[in-house]
């Protein structure tokens, strides 16, 4: 589960975005709303330990990520957090299966091919497992990325604008998939988005505030 308290995220001396308070339990989901440029990605990266936590605290499953150093922080991120992006999904030249196995590879963990194949099958990609990643459609690539985010049974799944520029039907399906992924793995799900269509499906919403602005928590 995720607990964020008065987070100010940025890099070094640059305070970029603020997030008041957010708690997401296992299998639950929350939207991190805000227009483009409001610092949503920076907040996600701070939660994942890739941007600086300048104020406040971030706890994932009780662990203070900012308190971890170097390799331990990287390993924790690989183990406990799954990422899904808008269009950065797969590495071309590798098969779909190998792309899913990038998650354990990145932290030197055991690569469970059977579970990876099962996840791909569950997401309707069984026939694509051995295909080169670049032959997949955009939607298929994103589903493969979701499978990768689920593979190590993370505590938290972070999705950055996963539905931007998708039509309504596809948007709904992606939201369903992410919700199901979180529920199945018992992870907390945070979706950073400016896509208001998602508000219909997820009830918990917080707003990213660019530092200096004082937008209310909705």
């Amino acid at each position: 589960m995720l607990a964020v308290e008065s987070l100010v995220a940025g890099y070094g001396r640059h305070r970029l975005a603020r997030l008041g308070r957010l708690e997401v339990g296992p299998g639950q989901a929350a939207l991190l709303l805000g227009p483009s440029g409001s610092g949503k990605t920076t907040l996600l990266l701070a939660i994942a330990g890739l941007a600086d936590v300048l104020e406040g605290t971030v706890r994932i499953d009780g662990v203070d990520v900012a308190g971890l150093r170097g390799a331990a922080r990287d390993r924790f991120r690989g183990r406990a957090i799954g990422f899904v992006f808008q269009d950065l999904h797969l590495i071309a030249g590798l098969s779909t299966l190998d792309n899913v196995l990038l998650a354990p590879f990145a932290i030197g963990a055991r690569q469970d091919r059977r579970r990876a194949l099962a996840l791909l099958e569950e997401l309707g990609l069984a026939a694509r497992a051995r295909r080169p990643a670049e032959t997949l459609s955009r939607g298929e690539a994103q589903r493969a990325a979701i499978a990768r985010a689920m593979l190590l049974e993370p505590k938290l799944i972070l999705a950055d604008e996963p539905t931007a520029s998708l039509d309504d039907e596809t948007c709904r399906r992606v939201a369903d998939l992410l919700g199901r992924a979180a529920a199945e793995t018992g992870a907390a799900l945070v979706i950073a988005t400016h896509d208001l269509r998602l508000r219909e499906r997820f009830e918990v919403c917080v707003s990213a505030e660019p530092v200096g602005a004082q937008a209310p928590v909705s």
Partner: peptide
């Protein structure tokens, strides 16, 4: 650059 960043989000250490 973006693929290397992807690897970092997956937990890859800079040394990798």
């Amino acid at each position: 650059r973006r693929e290397l960043a992807l690897l970092r989000t997956l937990g890859a250490r800079p040394s990798l």
